[in-house]
């Protein structure tokens, strides 16, 4: 049972790491970014190229992930400049099509650079193996993912709720017009938000790389889970995404134990259930 819960939390936190950036960009810019999963994947591939299939140490993995976050963040600025900026005032459908196109391009480029074959990367020494937590075997890498997820959540909360820049970002997401009237350089703040969102995707890709099978469809799996998470949590809410990630992780874990022959269905049943009960998400009224 405890094993199942820890597994669920691992899934949940892994998804949260991806969903955080997705909900952030929605909160600030009202964009449903279909390309988010693809950039998550780019982060993972970048880190795999940097550290190889057997990362030398946890520190090397973390450093590579941060570097990947930075690079993917820069890609985000380019995407904002070239694509998002042009469609931000257009109908939502255009935004969806535009980000979908970015996703396709991104996946295509990944195939060109890294090829179609599956890659796998093992956890670095220090994160491999596991520990006995009482009677239960817990993979060290699971603990690493859970710690990363919780840290990312606390850090984002702290930045958005307590720092002046975070407060301004929140202000801009709640009332962009007033922010402009107050003299905020809204386009620049938008760039910052998009850059952060993409960087989060890249970071998540790097951190979650070990134990994943790296292939050009990696982005899709996480994208679907992340969308489910931010919909259940309430679009644009970091706190909601955190709660929903845990909830959906638990549902998925329960699914794996109770109905092992139909894996992954629980998430969607959960999604439908929450849409019926709380169509605006758990914390739908809250923003960012």
């Amino acid at each position: 049972m405890l094993f199942a819960i820890i597994n669920s939390l691992t899934t949940g936190m892994a998804v949260f790491l991806v969903a955080a950036g997705l909900t952030l960009i929605y909160g600030v810019m009202r964009i449903l970014n279909f390309a988010h999963g693809a950039f998550f994947m780019v982060g993972a591939y970048l880190v795999s190229s940097m550290v190889g299939q057997a990362p030398p140490s946890t520190l090397a993995l973390a450093a590579a992930a941060i570097l990947a976050a930075f690079i993917v963040g820069l890609f985000g600025l380019v995407v904002q400049r070239v694509v998002l900026k042009r469609v931000q005032d257009a109908d939502e459908h255009y935004m969806l099509i535009a980000t979908f196109a970015v996703m396709l391009i991104c996946v295509g480029v990944v195939k060109l650079i890294w090829g179609l074959e599956f890659l796998s990367v093992s956890p670095p020494p220090g994160l491999e193996g596991g520990n006995m937590l009482g009677p239960v075997f817990v993979p060290t890498f699971s603990i690493f993912v859970i710690v990363c997820g919780v840290l990312a959540f606390l850090l984002l909360e702290l930045l958005l709720q307590r720092s002046w820049a975070g407060k301004m970002l929140t202000a801009m997401s709640r009332d962009r017009l007033m922010a402009q009237l107050m003299g905020l350089n809204v386009p620049v703040w938008m760039m910052v938000a998009v850059g952060c969102s993409f960087a989060l995707a890249g970071l998540a890709g790097g951190l979650l790389l070990p134990n994943q099978t790296l292939s050009p469809v990696l982005g899709d799996q996480f994208l679907l889970m992340s969308f489910a998470t931010i919909i259940v949590g309430g679009l644009g809410s970091i706190r909601g995404a955190f709660l929903a990630a845990i909830l959906l992780g638990l549902i998925d874990g329960f699914n794996a134990i109770a109905f092992p022959n139909i894996p992954g269905v629980g998430i969607y049943i959960g999604l439908v259930f929450f849409l019926l009960v709380r169509p605006n998400g758990i914390l739908g009224e809250e923003q960012i």
């Binding site: 929140t170 402009q180 009237l181 107050m182 003299g183």
Partner: peptide, 28 residues
């Protein structure tokens, strides 16, 4: 000029719906 640059020139509009940020203190 975009709105924020006009604000920086020294034009300040108080909109009729006031638009006070609810999540910030009055001082903020």
């Amino acid at each position: 000029l975009p709105a924020y640059k006009r604000a920086r020139l020294g034009l300040q509009l108080v909109p009729e719906d006031r638009r006070i940020y609810q999540h910030l203190t009055v001082l903020e």
